[in-house]
Design a binder for these strands. Sequence first.
DNA 1: CTTTCTGCAAAGGCTTTGCAGTCCG
DNA 2: CGGACTGCAAAGCCTTTGCAGAAAG
Lengths: 184, 184
Amino acid sequence: MVQSSQHPVETSPADSPDGEVMTKVEALEVSLSPQERFSEYLQTRGLRQTNQRKFLVEQVFAQHDHFDAEELIDRLPRRGEENYVSTATVYRTLRECVDAGLLNCFQLDGRTVYDHDYGYPQHDHLYCTQCRKLLEFQSDELLEIRDKMAAMHGFRVESHRMIIQGVCRECSRARRKKRKQDLV
Amino acid sequence: MVQSSQHPVETSPADSPDGEVMTKVEALEVSLSPQERFSEYLQTRGLRQTNQRKFLVEQVFAQHDHFDAEELIDRLPRRGEENYVSTATVYRTLRECVDAGLLNCFQLDGRTVYDHDYGYPQHDHLYCTQCRKLLEFQSDELLEIRDKMAAMHGFRVESHRMIIQGVCRECSRARRKKRKQDLV
DNA sequence: CTTTCTGCAAAGGCTTTGCAGTCCG
DNA sequence: CGGACTGCAAAGCCTTTGCAGAAAG
């Protein structure tokens, strides 16, 4: 079976229904908006400020969310509608956003997932293998270990990617409930 | 540009040329060989003990190395030669090895990389973005943080994947050398 | 003998690319 | 105006799948 096209991705909820400790990943203060930052990037490289690029960056930063190309395309205007952008241009622009430092990307289940980088602090992910939701977490200790391990091996760190796979609270609950029902 | 098909992947060298601390990832003592373990897995599920499966598991465990499907296929007999195994069967068997717990797999640069799991301790990776080499490291602290972060979010951990990207010692040296030459 | 497996070739999913027309600067 | 950009369709890459013949139990 091939991955379905349903990949709900959400950020960590601010509240904790169980009253447990929750780290919340907050937006950072930045002097330039993502749009301005991208504009700067384009100018530096002698690239052009097109309507498609402006529109895409605006859409990408309209909500803080993880997404893949397909999800982005799904919420953009269709062919024939105003502001339609072709698939090729979407892929090309996503790559530029990564180069510009606006987005991060990583592979998950064979698709490329994009994540806001600019104006957002470093973080890692918890991935629910049941509902495919992505939660974020932050850990300075993790960074320390990363740097220590890299140093041990003479590595100069550029970046890292940590994904914890498992089952989220909601899916665990749903499963327990189901098991209970199955017993009846 | 698309990823090239050259992906040297090597394990961590045992010696440290710089005399720095090195963690070495050692093989574990296991009661069954990978072949025996796989055989057991097949029997349990009523699957068959074919020559192709036996041959592939043997090849996969002949050397401790990370590899992708292409690299494995490259060192197998060609079509027409003795013990030839089709691409489809290689992919099918790799998947079975993962199901059987013999191999781990993860995505890197768009390809699926396989890693010995059975008879080998949990470990994570350092990935050199210059030479595409994969080194291994082990850290119990990392596991503690993983569990702590998961607990904070009500997650039941199944597994995790951590990859530190950067430049390895050898590539750093090569680069320094090159810069020096460029100055002459 | 029956069911699973294999090899083949074709298809699939995601992403990139060549090209001709379009648009930015 | 010239080079960069876009949309389109086609190709590419890696992996999976349908099917008919082969093989395991």
